[in-house]
Computed example of a mutant assay.
Amino acid sequence: MPPALASAIVVVRVLIALLFIGMGIVHFIPAVTHGMAAMIPPRLRRSRVATPLRLVWFTGICEIAGGVGMLIPATRFAAALALSVFLVAVFPANAYAAEHRDRFGRVAIPFWPRLIAQLALIVLVVVVGVTSVPA
């Protein structure tokens, strides 16, 4: 692998890890947490155990763990797969927000751009998660 490509993979991997860790931390900021909880679609609000607030906290933990996992060679592959599944699992909340732009404002990215961005992020996560870079 050319050194420039190997360096680019490492840089993108670290940036993706920091993105997920940062977004995971944001899930615990009260003002943001309540906005994210409101994005949970009504059909997912029926559980007494998985309340919207708990789902937001759980997804925050998942993002932090996945981001950290991307930085550790022994867990990188599993983290990439888990983050890919995570991105698919949280998409309904993003789609719900897109349908209710008047309620969610700027965080409600229109459906198609959000879907394309989500798919691109999944591809990036998988590529940098499964690609070995020689030391």
Rank of each mutant, 00 (worst) to 15 (best):
R45A: 03
F28Q: 03
I61E: 04
R13F: 07
P134H: 13
R48H: 13
R106D: 07
I122T: 04
T33K: 15
I21M: 12
M23A: 11
R54K: 14
T51C: 15
V125L: 06
F58N: 04
V128G: 05
L115A: 10
R43I: 12
E63S: 11
L81D: 07
G24N: 01
I122Y: 05
V56D: 01
V130M: 12
F77K: 14
H27G: 05
R114N: 11
M70H: 08
A50C: 06
V11F: 15
V107C: 13
L5I: 11
P2D: 13
I109K: 09
A97V: 03
I25F: 00
V68K: 02
F58H: 07
V107I: 14
I40V: 12
F28E: 01
A117L: 12
L83C: 02
P3K: 15
V128E: 03
F91R: 10
I21C: 03
I25E: 00
P110M: 13
A89C: 13
V85S: 09
L55Q: 08
F91P: 01
A82C: 10
V107R: 15
A97I: 04
A74P: 02
A4C: 06
V107N: 11
S7D: 15
A38P: 10
V32T: 06
G22F: 01
M39K: 12
